[in-house]
Design a protein around this nucleic acid. Structure first.
Lengths: 181, 181
DNA sequence: TGTATTTCTTAATATAGATTAACAAATAAA
DNA sequence: TTTATTTGTTAATCTATATTAAGAAATACA
């Protein structure tokens, strides 16, 4: 989920499979049982839900160096909540092992540390996201997005940025219009 | 942050200090440098921010068995973003060590696993929270809160529940009124 | 116990953002 | 290319929630 160059150390070689997928490929469907994690070497993945009204809500964008995984389901062993698909042609590593098993007696201290750091970074990112969703206006959240993920806007359609921010494409268009003045 | 009985195994004895604090005690102020984590043995803590308009936003409630810590700041070594205080007289353990150092060569595999599980549970909780904030109405979020944290409503004033949900006390009062019919 | 303070409720009004719709612009497909 | 599809814009209208205000209820305090 976040940029962490030490990740290669963490990934447990024999459990990993490298893969190339085309833009549009769905890696995980809502309801899937066998949940995996994906490390992005090159390209761009995203995870998202579709609510009862059929509306998409993007949970994360995962560009180079990030990991996407459905923690909620992963930790509970329940079916996937999230869809995961490729927004660009992507080169990735599939991590099949349950994340808990990765912290096995066979992994080194350094690996475990990098692994822990990765989890903490995710929590930190989510903490910020929750606080912004609770206290900031759509415009403020958009401004924060531009700073925090400067390269994403050029790579995805605007409506996906709106979906990530939790607003409609129309609302984002209006905000951008206002910001130009 | 979440209920996990294995936590005692994780906590590294000599780094821990048990403490009793009175209701209202502030354990961490926004801007504090030396960030600690708190494990609640008995009682109730919360973490929260205060925005530019002076409005409080509760990030987590931490009843018995939970840990509160300011991950955002902890991981970056930056000053605390969150306040942490006691909503009831509380018995707690102060974890001074940086969380990364806890995953040292001295901790056992079991400890590390429990520790990892704890982090994953937090991510899982936050994932759900983000998705709810993005896609659900205030009433839906309140209903979810009642199910997920059934005992908290009896222990905190209603306005704090509102603050946790990201709505005003007036809005929550109205929602509760509607739900009685 | 009585008084002050905080919390909760209700209602009127305001506002950010949703919805709907229609069109323009860009991108993909034929 | 030309045409079809997706994406972005603008504007009118609607709705959930915020804001403001005032009184009632509960709680803390003297």
């Amino acid at each position: 989920m976040e940029n962490n160059s030490a990740i290669n150390t963490v990934l447990f070689k024999k459990e990993i499979q490298t893969k190339r997928v085309k833009k549009g490929t769905i890696l995980q469907n809502q309801g899937d049982i066998n949940i995996k994690s994906y490390y992005v070497k090159k390209g761009l993945l995203r995870s998202y839900t579709i609510d009862e009204k059929g509306k998409e809500h993007i949970f994360v964008f995962a560009p180079e160096g990030w990991i996407v995984s459905d923690m909620e389901s992963h930790s509970k062993g329940s079916p996937a909540q999230l869809f995961i698909d490729a927004l660009e042609d992507t080169e990735l590593k599939v991590i099949k092992k349950n994340i808990l098993d990765q912290t096995s007696s066979l992994t080194s201290t350094e690996q475990t540390k990098a692994h822990t750091l990765n989890l903490i970074n995710r929590i930190s990112t989510l903490q910020k996201r929750v606080l912004l969703l609770m206290s900031a206006s759509a415009k403020e959240r958009y401004k924060d997005f531009l700073i925090t993920y400067p390269n994403i806007i050029q790579r995805v359609p605007q409506k996906m940025v709106a979906s990530y921010l939790g607003i409609t494409p129309e609302a984002l268009s209006k905000i951008r219009g206002e910001m130009l003045k």
